[in-house]
């Protein structure tokens, strides 16, 4: 395990943000940290990257302790924070060379590395322009490039694609996949479940300061159940009668009832027949495959009955 965090606690004043979080990331994989706003994702990333100390618990990155051996940890990681960290008054190239120098590459090596990265992130045309003239997508790309100057073993990305258009997002995803295929470990946080679904080998969902769920995307999806039929009714009285008929729990929408299904046409026929015989008019039927959104909603919303199999 290249990242091993055990029993992380962190409070700001009387606000408990992390209340015993464990994380384990295998080398060469993509790990996604999910959670609603304010769940403590950024706080966790800051602890893992030596910027903040945990109140309790310990973290080892590539075998080094983040508190006692911070400099060694910093030598093997890189961080792209939630807000873009670039000097607006320097050019893209100057920003990259500066990081290269701070990573103790010689001047020629730092320049070569900057050129490579500018090519890779399609910023060659803009490299001599000051960053203040860059678009949001160009900034995000340069920000990621800044993280790659030192060829780190573990890259931490805090919401790398927030605010990007779909095509820039795809570019970013491709860059991340390239990194993984060359053996780099990625730890990212995201608000987009699709992103976690596409990229991550393992997901941890934190909520209320604790790990609410963890596992592969498939395992998490199966945790919220298999396929489902969503039946929409015109009035709530009909929903109540259908609940009695199928013995299924109500969801958040008072006019919709979700019932477990194997996804077959046969099952759909039977359901519709049952409804017709009981004389309950159904307005609309849709079949539903579970997504990470279901996992997210069912685990982070307290007033919602969890979806059962």
């Amino acid at each position: 395990m290249i990242v091993e965090a055990t029993g992380l606690h962190k409070a700001f004043g009387s606000t408990k943000v992390l209340d015993g979080v464990d994380l384990h990331v295998a080398e060469g994989t993509v790990f996604a940290l999910l959670g609603p706003n304010g769940a403590g994702k950024t706080t966790t990333i800051r602890i893992l990257t030596t910027l903040s100390r945990p109140d309790l618990g310990s973290v080892r990155i590539a075998g080094y302790d983040v508190v006692r051996e911070a400099t060694k940890v910093r030598g093997v990681i890189s961080l792209t924070g939630q807000s873009v960290a670039l000097d607006d008054q320097q050019t893209g190239r100057e920003n990259l060379v500066m990081i290269g120098r701070l990573m103790h590459l010689g001047r020629p090596a730092a320049r070569r590395r900057a050129t490579d990265l500018l090519e890779r992130f399609d910023l060659v045309d803009a490299m001599k322009r000051r960053v203040k003239t860059y678009s949001g997508g160009m900034r995000r790309r340069l920000d990621l490039a800044m993280s790659l100057v030192s060829q780190p073993r573990v890259i931490f990305l805090d919401e790398p694609t927030t605010g990007l258009d779909p095509s820039s997002r795809t570019t970013m995803w491709d860059a991340i996949k390239d990194l993984v295929s060359s053996g780099t470990t990625i730890v990212l946080t995201t608000q987009y479940l699709e992103e976690a679904d596409r990229l991550a080998d393992r997901i941890v969902l934190i909520n209320g300061g604790k790990v609410a769920a963890s596992g592969t995307t498939d395992a998490l999806k199966s945790q919220v159940g298999g396929d489902r039929l969503d039946l929409r009714f015109a009035v709530e009285a009909d929903v109540a009668r259908a609940v009695a008929l199928f013995d299924a729990p109500r969801g958040t929408d008072p006019l919709v009832l979700g019932i477990p299904s194997d996804g077959s046409a046969d099952h759909l026929h039977r359901v519709l027949d049952d409804l017709r015989i009981a004389g309950v008019p159904v307005v609309k039927v849709s079949s539903h495959r579970p997504t990470l959104d279901d996992v997210f909603l069912s685990l982070t919303t307290t007033d919602r009955t969890p979806v059962q199999v």
Partner: peptide, 13 residues
């Protein structure tokens, strides 16, 4: 107050 200090602090300097 910008993200710059975090970036610099995450470097081995």
């Amino acid at each position: 107050t910008s993200g710059m200090i975090d970036r610099l602090r995450s470097l081995p300097i």
